[in-house]
């Protein structure tokens, strides 16, 4: 749409600016303050320059948390994206069953994050859970509270359970917008199922798929509640992801300086990915209007 140049539109945006600035800029500046100051208590702060940043960048603790975080995001993307596409391709196109699938698939997306943790806790415990109990019954040694690998598998499966539907729903929306004529043309050319997918469906889905990947990356990168409820970051530190580590450091141990430096670097990564996301969005919009 052609937009009119009008700087008075600022007045319409002003309320948003005030509300968001209050809850974003003020806290963020607090974080910036802490990250360059040190204290011996009594609210007595002195300049510490980039000391905390240097300390955090070379700290093993942050490296380990970052490593776990990247590994986790990579694993869930590698599972959720292909699975989501596969499910979307198999969804009924219209009618009662389409609505039926949509409603059931959306259900996990709308369950509060802490309840997702609770559901999987109840589902996987060896004493009371269906999965844990069944695995124990057939002789598989599984205990997510003691074994790091089991904890990882549980968290990954939980995330797949929680979010694959989002990828599937987005792809489904992309598929729905493909005109029937494309399929008819492919049929006349006797295209195989694979070439229909490769040359018609995948290119038409690429936009929404990119959005899905970025959204899943962002959300998995700041995952907090589900692992917090399920494993509390344990056993040991094996499922302590960035957010969990940060909260431990800031609220648990009250290490303000390191936590703030950590926050700033965390935020910069998010900023970078947001920028990619924004660029993708605006490019897609531009293509649409063409």
């Amino acid at each position: 749409m052609e937009k009119t140049q009008n700087n008075k539109a600022w007045f319409l945006v002003l309320p948003v600016l005030i509300v968001v600035a209050f809850s974003a800029v003020i806290p963020l500046m607090t974080v910036v303050n802490y990250s360059v100051n040190d204290t011996f208590g009594q609210n007595d702060f002195f300049w510490n320059g980039l000391g905390w940043f240097e300390e955090m960048i070379s700290s093993d603790r942050m490296h380990a948390a970052l490593g776990r975080q990247v590994l986790f995001s990579a694993i869930i993307l590698a599972i959720e994206v292909p699975l989501g596409i596969f499910v979307a391709l198999n969804m009924p196109k219209k009618g009662f069953w389409a609505s039926f699938c949509l409603v059931l698939m959306a259900l996990p997306l709308l369950i509060p994050f802490n309840v997702v943790g609770t559901i999987w806790q109840i589902f996987c415990r060896i004493d009371i859970g269906l999965l844990g109990h069944s695995l124990a019954a057939i002789g598989i040694d599984y205990n997510y509270t003691n074994d790091a690998l089991d904890a990882w598998i549980t968290i990954v499966v939980m995330d797949v359970w929680h979010w694959t539907s989002l990828v599937a729903l987005l792809c489904y929306a992309g598929l729905q917008s493909i005109p029937q004529a494309y399929y008819q043309a492919a049929k006349i050319d006797q295209a195989s199922r694979w070439s229909v997918f490769r040359y018609i469906e995948l290119p038409k889905m690429s936009g929404v798929l990119l959005i899905a990947v970025l959204l899943r990356f962002m959300d998995s990168f700041m995952i907090y509640t589900e692992p917090f409820v399920l494993t509390g970051g344990g056993p040991g530190n094996s499922t302590t992801f960035l957010s969990i580590d940060l909260v431990k450091m800031a609220v648990g141990q009250f290490d303000l300086g390191p936590a703030a430096a950590f926050s700033i670097m965390y935020f910069l990564v998010i900023l970078l990915v947001s920028w990619v996301f924004y660029t993708v969005m605006t490019t897609l919009d531009a293509q649409e209007t063409k």
Binding site: P27, L28, F221, L242, L246, V247, A250, S263, F267, I270
Partner: peptide, 10 residues
């Protein structure tokens, strides 16, 4: 997109 964990303490 920003992680709530960054904002919790402030």
């Amino acid at each position: 997109m920003s992680p709530p964990a960054v904002f919790a303490l402030p």
